[in-house]
Amino acid sequence: MNNELSKYRIVVVRVVLGLVAFCLLVSAALPTHRAIAHGLILGSIVSCINVLHMAYKVRQLLETAAAAGTGERRRKRYGLGFGFRLATSILAVVLPLEFPHYFSEIAVMASLVFAQFLLLILGIIYSLKEERMREKAKKEKADQS
């Protein structure tokens, strides 16, 4: 897979696994807040699955577009797989409605968009880093000349 995209994927998976571990600790240490912790775990895992699926679909779509640009013929059409992501999100929301004692509905809804906002933050961080590196390289060039 593309280097830049896989970098984002790896960081998102690591952060989500960290959040899940933290929520499990909270669930074990604070039994009164167990439903919130379980809701956060459920929502963040579904959100991570959505982001991974989206990365796969974006790569597939753009590879098809690039191949069409080079003249290679591929008749198959690709969508972005929004139906799958919608269905997983609805499934995640149905669980707290059916089992309100185990999952907090608000926590699930809040953490359903966790990975997507994490992507935005990662994008800002990486673009700032790149800009700093470019400026550094420019300075070094100016010093050498």
């Binding site: 984002y8 974006v58 753009l62 997507q116 992507l119």
Partner: peptide, 18 residues
């Protein structure tokens, strides 16, 4: 461009999901 589209589509799709 792929990375930018990935972030953009992710943020756009948050709204209909919610």
């Amino acid at each position: 461009l792929q990375t930018t589209m990935f972030i953009g589509v992710g943020l756009i799709e948050v709204l209909p999901i919610i």
